[in-house]
């Protein structure tokens, strides 16, 4: 058993094919798409996976944002870095997620850390690209005026360019948030928990659990999206003024 993949797959199986305890609540109506009685009885069981889900998603987003943002600032100052960094983050983005999880297993093992690494890697492309886009979209005249007025390069970046890039940066974050929350359901494959534990089971004739977990995932995505929209509104009052 020197092959780590075989080992990993064996360990994964236990979690993946966990039996769903349906009990007798809906035995009579197994064809039902959604069993309310079961849902009422079992709603508590979703609490821990939801917390786990957040524990994967939030660190992944924070790390992804910090790394992508730092790369974008670096590439903004050192122009020639832009294409290679775009390519590098793009390649990361094209790795199929399941393959990515398993490829990392020999290095980082089962569990949350691996999930966080994979998910944050996926956010890099979109956040990096949008941050660069936002910085590049700042009108040259505004930068020229800022420079001519005596702002230092650092002041131009933090007081002029980045504030003006906020809409694009947040647009990138919104896409990243939704995809991260969705892909995090696969974390169950490497025993990292999350809402995926309530989705992937052997009992495919009983979809109630999948529907509830899916709904929580969607609500979570919507909530994050709403928070980001709010942040954008608060940080870019000039954009509303322009439309009014």
């Amino acid at each position: 058993m020197g092959n780590p993949f075989v080992l990993a797959a064996g360990e994964v199986g236990g979690d993946f094919f966990k039996e769903r305890d349906v009990g007798d609540l809906c035995q009579a109506q197994t064809q039902h798409v959604f069993c309310f009685d079961w849902a009422r009885e079992n709603i508590d069981r979703f609490e821990a996976p939801t917390v786990q889900h957040l524990e994967i998603v939030i660190p992944a987003l924070v790390i992804g944002f910090v790394v992508a943002f730092a790369l974008a600032l670096l590439a903004h100052r050192t122009r020639w870095l832009q294409p290679p960094l775009l390519a590098a983050t793009g390649i990361l983005y094209t790795i199929p997620s399941i393959a990515f999880f398993f490829l990392l297993l020999p290095l980082t093992g089962l569990g949350r850390d691996t999930a966080i690494i994979v998910l944050s890697a996926y956010t890099l492309q979109i956040i990096y690209r949008n941050t660069i886009l936002g910085l590049n979209n700042v009108p040259a005249a505004v930068k020229d005026a800022a420079r001519g007025m005596g702002l230092t390069p650092r002041q131009i970046l933090w007081k002029v360019e980045l504030p003006l890039a906020i809409p694009e940066i947040i647009a990138g974050l919104r896409v990243a948030v939704v995809s991260t929350i969705a892909i995090a359901t696969l974390a169950v494959l490497i025993s990292a928990g999350g809402l995926g534990t309530e989705m992937y089971g052997s009992n495919l004739t009983f979809p109630t659990s999948i529907i509830i977990a899916g709904a929580i995932v969607m609500l979570m995505a919507l909530a994050f999206d709403a928070i980001l929209l709010l942040v954008q509104r608060l940080t870019t009052p000039w954009r509303r003024a322009a439309r009014a």
Binding site: P139, A140, A141, V142, K143, D144, A145, A146, R147, G148, M149, G150, L151, T152, V160, P163, L164, T236, W238, A242
Partner: peptide, 30 residues
């Protein structure tokens, strides 16, 4: 350079006002 520029008014054709600052803030920039 930055110090020098703060003593020299600078007006360009494309104006280059800061879109994210109010008119008063723009005027008060230097």
């Amino acid at each position: 350079p930055a110090q020098l520029r703060r003593e020299i008014g600078y007006v360009i054709q494309q104006i280059g006002l800061f879109p994210h600052r109010t008119i008063s803030e723009n005027i008060g920039a230097v």
